[in-house]
Design a protein around this nucleic acid. Structure first.
Ligand SMILES: NC(=O)c1ccc[n+]([C@@H]2O[C@H](COP(=O)([O-])OP(=O)(O)OC[C@H]3O[C@@H](n4cnc5c(N)ncnc54)[C@H](O)[C@@H]3O)[C@@H](O)[C@H]2O)c1
Ligand SMILES: NC(=O)c1ccc[n+]([C@@H]2O[C@H](COP(=O)([O-])OP(=O)(O)OC[C@H]3O[C@@H](n4cnc5c(N)ncnc54)[C@H](O)[C@@H]3O)[C@@H](O)[C@H]2O)c1
Lengths: 205, 205
DNA sequence: GCGTTGTTGTGCAAATTGGCACAAACAAGA
DNA sequence: TCTTGTTTGTGCCAATTTGCACAACAACGC
């Protein structure tokens, strides 16, 4: 159960398991077997059992896993049993969609602030938020103690924005811009460029 | 060079390499070493060399890889040396952003049609496209021979939409809805749920 | 021409990851 | 209480994936 001993591949599957469990719960299931989960997920049942067993013995032989309890446990391990404040930078087409997206809060995230550089955008509404001036980012984010950032600016601005976020104390960045970011070792970056998965698929077409 | 012999992990890194090469080319570089690429990508130099060597000997000892030629080769292998038509389903906030996004075409993709179920949406403009009625999807997609689909509907509709796409002959689906899709073996699905990478990061915070 | 520097492609070893198969545990029904 | 049917957790092995290290090669300066 030592955090540093759990391989990243395993951690990276946990959110998938959690999402499936939440769906199962909505359907009213109280108990679910690794077999059943496997079919809903495309991950082998043995894999699921082995992954989950690294965090404790949640399953009951003959019955499967208690859906609600397991989901709670996963949320605790992933630390999404609370809601994280997130800062959004770049409120263009994509940033707007993100600001208005309702799917974050009940899964552990809330966009708490949004910043842009364009004077036309600053002061306007995006979702429930007022777009703020990028020049005030460092202070605002630092004061609020925000640890997670989302970048939805053009690629040309992304590294500069990342630097600002890091300076402001952000430790995790979700980057929508199609460019690799260079950040200190203690900051994590995940990428969401839709062209990458598209090109992965065309290889096989 | 036999397609089926190249491991998927390797294929999945190719689009990353291609993106980095395109950036390097824009900066005017004509030659780039695995070392240099490694720093821009966060993938080890040995890994890059080994991956690329599976597709042929593009590098020159002492100099590195010729940027333009290697990018061309990768585009050929990924089959993005042409532009694929893509069908978009669900033109809400996210679908709108996707329809207006300019970043697809020069990387091998063009949203050729967009469909929605909402009568309010049908007939309206989204980017350069007119939103069409979902009930006409099968015929339109089949006739156009489109092989790639993007789903940006709510999760509740995603599986049904996927079924329609498969029926219409689509072989690759990019799914933005936060739900696992069940499709025939010859159809590929990639997922883009932003909460998944966010939760992957909070584990370590 | 020749040493120096830099870089690839690759054989091999190490590490990681995934899958099989089964004992142990539990539920339920007779 | 015993039997039957399920399903977990895990030891062990196979496969995949990564990293190391070096010979082979190319350019360059002198
Ligand atoms: N639109 C999409 O569907 C989509 C899809 C995938 C990826 N992306 C990527 O997401 C990013 C945003 O895309 P978009 O379509 O919303 O672009 P956009 O041009 O509509 O919006 C970009 C926003 O960033 C702001 N900005 C620019 N420089 C900034 C800076 N230094 N600091 C703060 N704000 C700054 C701009 O003022 C603008 O509001 C791009 O990198 C794009 O490649 C977009
Ligand atoms: N908005 C975001 O930033 C964002 C981010 C990540 C993921 N997502 C996911 O993307 C999807 C779309 O998000 P959104 O914010 O654009 O939602 P939205 O409600 O704004 O848009 C959904 C659209 O899908 C259409 N639709 C519904 N059922 C349909 C059907 N059966 N066939 C065709 N069209 C149908 C609706 O009419 C609507 O136009 C959701 O699954 C959401 O979870 C959105």
């Amino acid at each position: 159960m030592d955090k540093s001993k759990i391989p990243h591949v395993v951690v990276s599957r946990l959110p998938i398991y959690l999402r499936a469990l939440e769906h199962a719960q909505q359907e009213g299931l109280t108990c679910i077997s690794s077999q059943e989960l496997s079919e809903r997920l495309g991950v082998s049942a043995a894999q699921i059992r082995k992954d989950l067993s690294m965090f404790g013995e949640y399953g009951k032989q003959g019955r499967g896993y208690p859906v609600a309890a397991l989901a709670d446990a996963l949320r605790r391990h992933l630390q999404v049993d609370k809601v994280w404040d997130v800062v959004l930078v770049g409120v263009g087409d994509l940033g707007h969609a993100l600001a208005r997206y309702k799917g974050f809060t009940h899964r552990g995230f809330r966009i708490a602030m949004a910043f842009d550089r364009d004077p036309e955008k600053i002061g306007t509404q995006a979702g429930d938020l007022i777009v703020e001036d990028i020049r005030t980012l460092a202070r605002r984010v630092q004061e609020a103690g925000i640890k997670i950032g989302m970048i939805a600016t053009p690629a040309a601005a992304a590294q500069e924005v990342a630097n600002m976020l890091v300076f402001a104390g952000v430790k995790a960045i979700l980057n929508y811009a199609p460019i690799h970011l260079t950040v200190p070792d203690d900051v994590r970056v995940e990428y969401l460029d839709p062209v990458i998965p598209l090109q992965r698929m065309t290889y096989y077409l």
